[in-house]
């Protein structure tokens, strides 16, 4: 690991100006992605701005049928939050299957969403629930946030402070995990809301995406059988040591059916 300067600001504007002053600096959250990257020298930032000391960006709250989760809330905290478990149980369930217990004790929702790993779990929940990403500068709809393969709408000196999730009527998440890392080979988040159904897929391609065909079928009949015959085009999906594109395409339908079944069970 190369050496770097370390800052622990205790106000958001201070964190933003530290990032702006030093273009080669990076925010540090749980470090579960960033620290392995530093260790392997895939990144060598001149400075780290640790977000751990910032007030008000940790914890879960609700109001007006929206659950707000602070960016520095860990996966373990979301998984065990009585509020999230009662309002959006599928989101608590998603957090509970990220990595392993030690990863969940440190890794954060803000870090996961900012990182936008194509196989990460949270992007499916964020897009599937139609969440809003709140940053130090603005609010960004999930639709306009994820650009595929580790790319997002975030500017270099912009910090995610919270994610706002509208509470759905019901929702479910199912993932086929890679056995060693537990990242998603394919993960599907399905949400039934007052205005329709949303289906978001992670792991299958270069970034999280929706499946309009399934959304239409589920809006007519919210049941696993409604999408059983829908086949996803393998063209453009990922092929790697875990699965080829054809198998991933098949898994999208299987996981979507399981997610719907879970949503029905939890409704």
């Amino acid at each position: 690991m190369r050496s770097f300067a370390y800052h622990q600001p205790n106000a958001i504007p201070e964190a933003v100006s530290l990032l702006a002053e030093q273009p080669e600096s990076r925010p540090l959250a749980g470090g579960m992605t960033l620290i392995p990257t530093l260790k392997q020298r895939l990144a060598a930032p001149a400075a780290l701005v640790d977000l751990a000391g910032l007030p008000d960006i940790k914890g879960c709250s609700n109001g007006n049928a929206v659950v707000t989760i602070g960016a520095m809330t860990t996966h373990a905290e979301v998984a065990s939050s009585p509020l999230v478990k009662s309002q959006i149980p599928a989101l608590a369930a998603l957090a509970s299957v990220i990595g392993d217990p030690a990863v969940r004790d440190r890794g954060t929702i803000g870090g996961s969403v900012a990182n936008n790993d194509p196989a990460a779990d949270y992007p499916a929940g964020v897009l599937g629930l139609g969440a809003t990403i709140v940053t130090s500068a603005r609010e960004i709809a999930a639709e306009n946030f994820f650009f595929g393969l580790f790319e997002t709408a975030l500017k270099p000196n912009e910090i995610i402070t919270a994610i706002r999730f509208p509470v759905p009527l019901s929702a479910g998440y199912a993932k086929f995990k890679a056995p060693a890392s537990r990242y998603a080979v394919v993960g599907v988040f399905v949400a039934k809301t007052a205005t329709g159904v949303r289906v978001a897929v992670t792991g299958a391609g270069s970034g999280v995406f929706r499946v309009p065909q399934m959304e239409r079928a589920l809006a007519e009949a919210f049941d696993p059988t409604a999408i059983a015959a829908i086949k996803i085009d393998a063209e453009g999906l990922t092929s790697d040591i875990h699965a080829d594109a054809g198998y991933r395409a098949h898994l999208v339908t299987v996981m979507a059916k399981r997610a719907v079944a879970t949503a029905l069970g939890a409704a």
């Binding site: 540090l28 392995p36 392993d100 217990p101 030690a102 440190r106 060693a180 890392s181």
Partner: peptide, 22 residues
Amino acid sequence: TSQCGACVVHLDGLAVKSCTLL
């Protein structure tokens, strides 16, 4: 790769990977 857990310690009572902690 932060995957094996041989380095787990307790930080304020939580099990964390000390190889992935500054």
